[in-house]
Amino acid sequence: SQDLQHTHHVLHVNSLLPSAVCNSSTQVSALHKKKSSLQVVHKHGPCSQLHQDKAKKTPRNADTLFQDQARVRYIRSRLAKNSAGSSDMKETDAANLLAKDGSVVGSGDYVVTVGLGSPKKQLSLIFDTGSDITWTQCQPCDGYCYDQMETIFDPSKSSTYSNISCDSALCNSLLSATGNSLDCSLSACVYGIQYGDSSSSVGLFSKERLTLTSTDVFDGFAFGCGQNNQGTFSGAAGLLGLGRDNLSLPSQTARKYNKFFSYCLPSSPSLTGFLTFGKDSGKGSSKSVKFTPLSRAAGLQDSSFYGLDITGISVGGRRLSISASVFTTAGAIIDSGTVITRLPPTAYAALRSAFRQRMSQYPMTDSLSILDTCYDFSNYKSVSIPKISIFFRGNVEVKIIPVGTMYSDTVSQVCLAFAANDDDGE
């Protein structure tokens, strides 16, 4: 049994299921208490204000995974555009998608609450390391505004709001941040961003006071004041862009935080995590952090995504035999908005094979959308699941916890939470 504990997670089956009650009080950590920290909650979890709207149903897992595919297509299209200077793929993919509800950024995402304007208006924004522009719905909704939980931001009621002119450098930066050229309305800068599933936000690119915490206030923060917003974005007020482009929040606040931020996503929607800006000045908490360099791979180095170099995968303590070229051909990114990790098919096949072999004592069941390795644990109180680690350049091992290994909301269908891309070249 000692050997088993080295190579497997042994756990109660119910611990894999989400709880219906918010339990954030037990999640108080030193980092979370920091002055520059925001609370991170799952959008559909019981700790989220957005969850209080009973009229909006929590999406089924299958819906979430369908939406997650849309997110992946959006990422692919942006990378393809970046490397080839073509938007053909984006248009093709957008046409193939049925969703028009902001699902690309709204599937399994997390939200944080920030203050905008003077006086400060609290807004719940989707936390997104895979995009750059921060935007919120704005009055007047000349085009369309979807329903959101908080009242919609009204710039006419703020003393610190100002437009950005068309001929400014900020306005000219929109092309790289959004993939779309700027537009002009009475010499005011107009932004437009599309997320690939026909959800979009269009409005005035403006400046406003952004209040992250009581001590961290930024005047002149450039953001999208969206007056025509297509989608639902699950009732969130907009999106917080944490990508690498010059218009992202980390870049705009670089003078104070030096583009340094960290976050932790909770193990369950019933718990809270944190998003902290700036280096942790306290002792201890950051010592165990292992760093891997951002990828220098072509197509990733100059993109606004955070590129990583995966070097290997282990299952049950054994490194899988996967050629290094499988990972280097297309590279990898880390994204807070994609739910399920996508691997090159060759790597996924090796992972799946090793995982199934070590899980052969459990009955398999139907696939769940993109997840093809699912088990029926109905007749078990506890199970043992092989430990999975992902290795990144610099010998950084990331051990995946049980709820990161399996995806489920019922014990009768608990699935390996990894999926394959279409081909190794993606």
């Binding site: 980092l31 399994g108 583009k259 960290s262 932790c264 995590g273 760093f291």
Partner: peptide
């Protein structure tokens, strides 16, 4: 491109050091 998604990031402290062009991971972040 492979994507390291948010299910697998749960409870990790993920550190973005943009100026240092590096990413950090620490187990048991929350």
């Amino acid at each position: 491109v492979a994507i390291f998604g948010n299910t697998q990031q749960k409870t990790l402290q993920v550190v973005h050091d943009g100026a240092g062009r590096r990413l950090g991971f620490s187990a048991g972040g929350c």
